[in-house]
Design a binder for these strands. Sequence first.
DNA 1: AAATAAAATTGATAAATATCACTTTTTGGA
DNA 2: TCCAAAAAGTGATATTTATCAATTTTATTT
Lengths: 235, 235
Amino acid sequence: MSIKGIFPIDKWDFKSRSVLAGLPDGDLEMLMANQTEKVYKLSEVIFWEGAYPSGIFYIKEGKVKKYKLDKDGREHIIYVANAGELLGYHAILSEDRYPDSAAALEETRIAFIPKEDFLKTLQHSGVLNGRLLKNLSHEFAVLANSLSMFAKSSVRERLALQLIILREKYKVNFQPGMPVAINMSRDDLASLVGTARENVVRLLSDLKEEKIVETKGRTITVLDVQKLIKIAGYK
Amino acid sequence: MSIKGIFPIDKWDFKSRSVLAGLPDGDLEMLMANQTEKVYKLSEVIFWEGAYPSGIFYIKEGKVKKYKLDKDGREHIIYVANAGELLGYHAILSEDRYPDSAAALEETRIAFIPKEDFLKTLQHSGVLNGRLLKNLSHEFAVLANSLSMFAKSSVRERLALQLIILREKYKVNFQPGMPVAINMSRDDLASLVGTARENVVRLLSDLKEEKIVETKGRTITVLDVQKLIKIAGYK
DNA sequence: AAATAAAATTGATAAATATCACTTTTTGGA
DNA sequence: TCCAAAAAGTGATATTTATCAATTTTATTT
């Protein structure tokens, strides 16, 4: 929760699911040679859709939303990224501009790695290459799943699915067995689900009556994941 | 249109946008050493979601739909792949099962490349590695775009967008300036747009009245792309 | 080319979702 | 701790989309 300041590279606690976990020391050093660190405040923008990428971002601590703006200027969250993940490398790999924007969902500590270092390391490191391919393939599958979900399912089903996913993301650092508290604005949640805030509010209060979640202020506590899974319609 | 039979490797006409275009000869030969070719009939399944991948597929000629089935057994197309594209490599890269199914949208000629050859070539070829990363990044951006589109836009907007995209895919081999004919069942189109067939039919007849498209049998001819772009709400 | 099956289309209606106007609650700064 | 300001919640209503039942058109087979 609390962000204490600048950490040296050797203090990084790579989560096991980090893209960079287990990368050879040499590769890691090359990649991190010129990293700079910054703490982003809630809602602070990390990069804008359409901008030319000058490097990639590694989330050391916190959470980040990736989103796109529609023609009416409304925000649509397409992904919530967690500590241990890399941001903005798609744009560099596809030699294009950022396809989406990114902003902090809470106070978030991020390392910036210049484009040149990233590309140099990538060229040098077969491991990093493979890691990114694997990561991208996975992200792709997740996204394809969301897409097919969006294509034909009710808002209630989509909300259930997003709560399941968010629960996983907010679970980090919590005890097993303990219910997970999701801290997210109704607007952001609605944007993630792809509906209006009012609908999310109404559906959440249904879920509350059904004893599936509990809410207190803006935090949502998942009481019964199994029922959520059933609602989301996952086999 | 017509499929003439088995082509030897050196006869392959790689389209410029093929993932394999410009791959060093050695790498290409290693990749293709044990390829086998098959012609798939309309609607014939190439691989099933959930199956373990034993290799990858290269589309030599034709078109393929990638889709997922929802809990009611209904099909949702997430992507239409064209000649020159590779299929099924995501699953191998992410060391998992196929995240979606694939089936031919027309008579389609496809080369099968065994998993071992693919992985061996990938390990050996930095170029292929980079090419796949770039390709995946691109596909990812396209998918992210569709997702944000789904999240908040009317069926009419989504239909317009899909017609624009399909027009590009069906444009291959046609003269510039000549209107492009899209040959696709209303069911498949509805699945791609994420709605019911009836809605697609109604919206198409609106577009017809507005002189934006023309239909004859199952083929849809795009007369005015600019208006479609306007409808889709793209800046 | 006729017969049959499959796909496309149309109209009526039901259901889901969005929007608007407003009240209440929560949150973050003075 | 109190006070704005922002966010969350509620009810009424409009709009969009889905579904059902039927008919017409197109494609396929003999």
